Amino acid sequence: MMKIGNKRKNPRIVVIGGGTGLPVILNSLRKKNTDITAVVTVADDGGSSGIIRDYINVVPPGDIRNVLVSLSDLPDVYKKIFQYRFDSKDQFFSGHAIGNLIIAALSEMDEGGIFDAVQKLSKMMKTQGNVYPASNTSLVLNAEFSDGSTLAGEAEITAAKKTIKQVWVTTTDGTEPEARQEVIDAIMQADQIVLGPGSLFTSILPNLMIKNVGQALCNTNAEVVYICNIMTQKGETELFSDADHVRVLNTHLGQNAINTVLVNTEPIPSNYMDRQKYDEYLYQVRYDFKGLREQGCRVISDNFLLLRNHGVFHDGDRVVDELMRLTGQMHL
C-alpha cells in the first residue's frame, strides 16, 4: 500500500545514506523550509576514516564530517578549515582531514560516544537540522557473493569486484548492531524518508541492515523515496537496472518498502566521462519502468543529470524540487 507523508508547512524529512551522494541532497534541501535529519553510515573502513578507526577505535568520521559541512551555517572559511586534508609531505598527518581528527577527539572525550559527540559538534558548526550516526559503535560490513564466498570490510568488499548477493552488519565487539532511539524516533515521526543517492551495498544498505532501523523504515507512515543512482558501479551494481536496485533494497528489508523512485532518464553524452578519474563507474543505469511498477513503486522519471568536470552527478536542486512536490511543498 502506498504511504503518503503528512502535508505540513515544514515537512520532516529524514535522509539516510553516506558517501558523496548524501551531501548533494542535503546542500539543496537546507535551502527549503524543512526539518532535516541526516542518518549517516558508520561502516566505512577506507581512507583517512579507516586509518583513524584502526588506530583509536572510533566510528569512522569521514561521511559524518561531510554531512556536518553540508548543513553548517558557518562562514565558508571555517568549513574549508574543517575539510582541509593534509598532503603527503606531512607524513604523520598525511591524508587526514582536520574534521576527521576533531570528530575522533570529541568522541574520545565524550563518554556518550560518537552520537553525543556529533550533537555537540553540530551545535559548534551551527548545522541546520540533525546529524545522527546510524550507530553509536563502529560497524563492520559483511557480504556474501554469488559464488558463495564471504568477505568483511567495505573496502575489501568493493575491491573484490564480485557480484554481491547480500550484505549485513556486525559490531566489532560482537553485540547486536543497534541505532539510538533518536534515529528510530526521527524515522517514525517523518513525513518523508529519502534513501540515496549513493552506493547501494556500501552506503545505503549498511544503515538499513541495523535491525531496528530496517524495522522502523518498514513500519513508518512516511513515504519512502529512493533516489536511484545514475551510473552502475564496479564491484557492486554492474549491469543493474533501476528496478534491480529497488529489488535489492526490498529483498534485504523483507518487503516492498520503497514507495517512490526517482530515476534519471537523461542520456549521458558519449565520451563525456573521464574514465580514469571516475574509474568505479561503468554504464548508465538501465531504465526498467515495468520492473519498478511490478514492485508497487510510484515512478518519477526526469532529467536529474548534472554534468561537471567530466563527471556525472545528480542535480541536487532538481531532485529536491521533486521531493518538495511529493510533500506538497512545491513553492517552498
Rank of each mutant, 00 (worst) to 15 (best):
Val131Gln: 11
Val131Pro: 07
Pro133Ser: 09
Ala134Pro: 13
Ser135Glu: 14
Asn136Arg: 14
Asn136Phe: 12
Asn136His: 10
Asn136Val: 11
Asn136Tyr: 14
Thr137Phe: 12
Val140Gly: 10
Asn142Gly: 11
Ala143Val: 07
Glu144Thr: 13
Asp147Cys: 05
Ser149Glu: 12
Leu151Ile: 02
Leu151Thr: 10
Gly153Asp: 01
Gly153Thr: 02
Glu154Met: 06
Ala155Glu: 10
Glu156Arg: 15
Ile157Ala: 07
Ala159Pro: 00
Ala160Trp: 10
Lys161Thr: 03
Lys162Pro: 14
Thr163Phe: 00
Gln166Val: 15
Gln166Met: 13
Val167Cys: 08
Val167Asn: 01
Trp168Ser: 13
Trp168Gly: 10
Val169Arg: 12
Val169His: 13
Thr170Phe: 12
Thr170Lys: 15
Thr171Trp: 12
Thr171Lys: 00
Asp173Ile: 03
Asp173His: 08
Gly174Gln: 07
Glu176Gln: 15
Glu176Asp: 14
Glu176Cys: 14
Glu178Cys: 14
Glu178Arg: 14
Ala179Asn: 01
Arg180Lys: 14
Glu182Trp: 05
Ile184Asp: 03
Asp185Gln: 15
Met188Ala: 11
Ala190His: 01
Ala190Arg: 07
Ala190Val: 06
Ala190Leu: 04
Asp191Leu: 10
Gln192His: 11
Pro197Gly: 05
Ser199Thr: 03
Ser203Val: 04
Pro206Phe: 05
Leu208Phe: 06
Lys211Gln: 15
Gln215Cys: 10
Gln215Trp: 08
Gln215Thr: 14
Thr220Lys: 11
Thr220Asp: 10
Ala222Asp: 07
Glu223Leu: 12
Val224Ile: 15
Val224Thr: 14
Tyr226Arg: 08
Tyr226Thr: 04
Ile227Gln: 13
Asn229Lys: 05
Ile230Gly: 06
Met231Val: 04
Thr232Ile: 02
Gln233Gly: 04
Thr237Gly: 05
Glu238Leu: 09
Phe240Tyr: 01
Val246Cys: 02
Val246Ile: 06
Val246Trp: 01
Arg247Pro: 00
Val248Phe: 13
Leu249Met: 09
Asn250Ala: 07
Asn250Met: 05
Gly254Ser: 01
